[in-house]
């Protein structure tokens, strides 16, 4: 019964043996199975009969890493301190940056290009928006408990990259024509 409610358990349990038995059961005698009186016990093992019900392939992205247990088996799961405003200002800041990008993105399409001040604001917001976006990608795909070193490397690479981009865009804004004007000229080249 537990295996019906939690098929994952069952798959783990019968994966090793299910495939060859299923193969054999097709080849052996399905007719004998059909003619079998209802009260006679099945020759196919229970686990195989249930495994045939799961039609999808076993298909996992990454195998489980070696597990390590923090503390003892009887320790409770650590619960983080509940804080109603944790990340709230951060979240609002992200939305404000994104919302600020909307008029700055629409304006060049209406006006052709932006004046230097507005262009500089657009650059600054793009830097912040990109940094936040990449940061959330790193947080999602390089979990701290799984790849702590890679997580740190990625974060520092991002910080250095963002700083470089900031300097580069400052240089581009002061020495060149500004990004909206540059894109316009490139588009019509």
């Amino acid at each position: 019964m537990a295996s019906i409610m939690r098929p994952g358990l069952l798959r783990q349990a019968c994966h090793a043996t299910a495939a060859p038995q299923r193969f054999m059961s097709i080849r052996a005698s399905p007719l004998a199975q059909q003619l079998r009186p209802t009260f006679a016990p099945s020759t196919i093992p229970q686990s195989t009969r249930i495994a045939a019900f799961h039609a999808t392939r076993r298909h996992q992205i990454l195998p489980a890493l070696p597990q390590k247990v923090e503390g003892t088996a009887n320790d409770p799961t650590p619960v983080p301190d509940p804080s109603p405003v944790h990340g709230s200002y951060h979240w609002s800041f992200e939305r404000i940056v994104s919302a600020g990008l909307v008029p700055l993105t629409v304006a060049p399409f209406a006006a052709g290009s932006l004046n230097p001040t507005t262009d500089a604001i657009l650059c600054a917001l793009l830097v912040v928006h990109s940094h936040i976006g990449f940061e959330s990608c790193i947080i999602d795909y390089f979990p701290k408990h799984r790849v702590p070193l890679l997580r740190n490397i990625a974060m520092w690479a991002l910080r250095i990259g963002t700083l470089t981009l900031g300097v580069a865009l400052y240089s581009f804004e002061t020495n060149d024509v500004g990004i909206t004007e540059a894109v316009t000229r490139l588009w019509h080249a």
């Binding site: 783990q12 999808t56 996992q60 992205i61 990454l62 489980a64 597990q67 247990v69 088996a73």
Partner: peptide, 20 residues
């Protein structure tokens, strides 16, 4: 004991593939 527990955890279900 820790080793037995860690080996039990290896048998826990893994998240399914996106393709399902």
């Amino acid at each position: 004991g820790q080793e037995i527990l860690a080996n039990q955890r290896l048998k826990r279900p893994v998240s399914p593939h996106l393709a399902i």
